[in-house]
């Protein structure tokens, strides 16, 4: 492709191949069966929406499956698919600390260790401050899903822009 017009290296840092693949061919779209947690999230200023469903183990302390539905940009959708990828088998407490780590990574202050390094592909987003909320949306929604006390019933949206 021609390179006369834009600073493509920046664009490539942001839209890495892995991100575009998760955007175009998501592996975790849909709803879990059964649904133990359900949470919708949105970014009101841009209109991106996401709906997460979670399947937990019998004790309710470990994530067995995560699926998502929604509409949004490549960053938001790829972030959701990557997150679903790594959450299987994770304890709820562990997942909550991953939320914190991801949000810190978006500030350029942290990254994931070797076993979770596939999430580090999102690090480029930290260089595009206006897009951080796109990447955070799914994690913000996960936090709300995990912290809700009822099983389903979460019909409202959690906004990614209130904090």
């Amino acid at each position: 492709m021609t390179t006369a017009i834009m600073a493509l290296s920046n664009v490539r840092d942001l839209y890495q191949q892995v991100i575009l693949e998760h955007y175009k061919k998501p592996r975790h779209k849909g709803k879990t069966n059964p649904v133990h947690r359900q949470q919708r999230g949105h970014n009101p200023s841009c209109g991106d929406t996401i709906e997460l469903t979670l399947k937990l183990n019998d004790a309710g302390d470990t994530i067995e499956d995560v699926k998502f539905e929604g509409e949004g940009c490549a960053i938001a959708m790829a972030s959701a698919d990557l997150m679903a990828d790594v959450l299987r088998g994770k304890q709820v407490t562990e997942a909550l600390s991953m939320v914190q780590r991801f949000q810190n990574m978006m500030k350029g202050e942290d990254e994931f260790p070797k076993e979770l390094r596939k999430l580090n592909v999102m690090q480029g987003v930290s260089q595009f401050p206006v897009r951080i909320k796109c990447a955070n949306l799914t994690w913000h929604t996960l936090k709300a899903a995990l912290e809700s006390t009822h099983d389903l019933a979460n019909t409202g949206f959690v906004s990614n822009e209130d904090t």
Partner: peptide, 18 residues
């Protein structure tokens, strides 16, 4: 949104959203 980010890298300011 992705389009707007990429155009921004070319110096072009457009709006994306609703």
């Amino acid at each position: 949104h992705d389009l707007s980010t990429i155009l921004d890298q070319a110096g072009v300011a457009i709006r994306a959203g609703h």
